[in-house]
Design a protein around this nucleic acid. Structure first.
Lengths: 249, 249
DNA sequence: CGTCCTTCGTTACGAGGCTTCACGTTTGTG
DNA sequence: CACAAACGTGAAGCCTCGTAACGAAGGACG
């Protein structure tokens, strides 16, 4: 920090590289511990697994909370990456495909690594303090923004023309129209409503499943129910026409 | 325990009464601490607030986990009570009213006491061990059963005749038809699917809201969006007729 | 009324985790 | 080679959980 020349150096020095690698290894080891032993993460364990002692970790993370925060930031970033990858593989005017891809990606992220999902979305973390709010909060917002921007791209194609319900209250209509000025674009209120509906349904399913509140349903049945959930979301957003139901008058 | 006569005594002795009161006070104080200081619950703090010392609490709860478990059991019981009360106030053949009452009650439970909701549904509690699974698990299941049985009563009135989607996979259909033999009744698979869809949407909304993932929406707008969510659930279960949408072909 | 026994609460204490500190050691640099 | 920065270690302090031993309160029963 003393010389401005050092600040402008773009190529990281050897020290910086090995330091970055160590940080990465610490985080990887910590995530492994979280996966195995649950939420009670012991600094000494991480260090021992790396062939070090506990105090050495404080050269890299000032605090146990900061390590958890870093894991959360990485987790949200990875989630955004996976969502983005899944959504970019869909056709830009295929709202039904978008919904399926987003829902499946969201759920798979939770299923593939329940410990990480718990870390991200199970709020009462041990020692959850102010610090986490200020570092992981924006990261969580970025994940939300990923969904939002991607959905907006689809919506701009006019694919949300016939949602099943487009009721929105006056307060929400004004907020949705104005609040997102940061991105430079306005969002139709009903589109944003659709996003929130989608998010609530998929997030709720993922939470229930990950936190073991659906243990009375077999894995296969859960898969089928999730499929039905997806189809329902496609219907309610008007991405699919309603099914021809002979019972329906 | 030595005399069988004492076991059969129905009226609790004075000691038992004061002990029960103390347990109640401990739990109340602990919940207060949870509400104020978050998840890091210190035994010494609880004791001090009660004018006692920490080891005294071990006369009433063998473990910090057992205290948390007791709080969870009470929380789920209270949630069941509130849900039951809200649902009993609805007409028995009014599915739309049932959905509104259940959703509002569920969300209000979360909003009224976010700390308790976090305790119940934010899984990664500090020191979450095997014990919690075996004590609070059934309590959580009881809450689910409350919703299920109440919904079944409504469904038995034939109100779920025209759900928007009644797709269910073969695995789920057989499970839903057979698994609930414990209650002596079978449940139509599509009804159970509707329950799960309802649960995912409402639980997801409550989680997002409680865990502050919707901080970018004002309170009023959130209320409006939740209203829209309810209406959507009413539509997808066939409780309400689809709106007359001039844009719809 | 006096004695006993159970329960309750306290002080004292040990175990274990987080975090800091002082000190050597390694490593890159001029 | 000399120097400085970063790194890692052992020792130590602090805090919390949980246990143990002891004293006090209070109901049960002669």
């Amino acid at each position: 920090m003393r010389s401005t020349a050092a600040e402008l150096e773009k190529v990281p020095s050897r020290r910086e590289r090995v330091r970055a690698a160590t940080i990465k290894e610490i985080k990887a080891t910590a995530m492994g511990m979280l996966r195995e032993h649950g939420a009670d993460l012991r600094f000494a364990d991480i260090a021992r697994e790396m062939g070090m002692t506990a105090p050495a970790l404080y050269r890299y993370f000032a605090d146990r909370d900061q390590l958890l925060s870093a894991l959360m930031v990485d987790g949200f970033a990875e989630m955004s990456t996976q969502l983005t990858a899944a959504l970019e593989a869909t056709e830009p005017d295929d709202l039904a495909g978008w919904i399926r891809a987003a829902a499946v990606s969201y759920r798979n992220f939770a299923k593939a690594d329940p410990a990480r999902f718990s870390l991200l979305f199970g709020l009462p973390n041990p020692g959850f303090g102010q610090h986490n709010q200020h570092t992981s909060g924006p990261a969580a917002g970025a994940t939300m923004a990923t969904l939002e921007q991607s959905l907006r791209a689809v919506i701009d194609k006019g694919q949300l023309a016939h949602p099943l319900i487009r009721y929105v209250g006056p307060q929400w209509a004004t907020e949705a129209g104005t609040a997102q000025a940061a991105d430079g674009a306005r969002i139709p209120a009903d589109a944003y409503q659709a996003l929130l509906h989608f998010l609530a349904a998929v997030h709720g399913f993922a939470c229930l499943e990950t936190f073991d509140h659906l243990h009375w349903i077999s894995d296969q049945a859960r898969d089928e129910l999730f499929e039905a959930q997806i189809e329902l979301l496609q219907l309610t957003t008007g991405a699919l026409p309603p099914p021809s139901d002979p019972d329906r008058p």
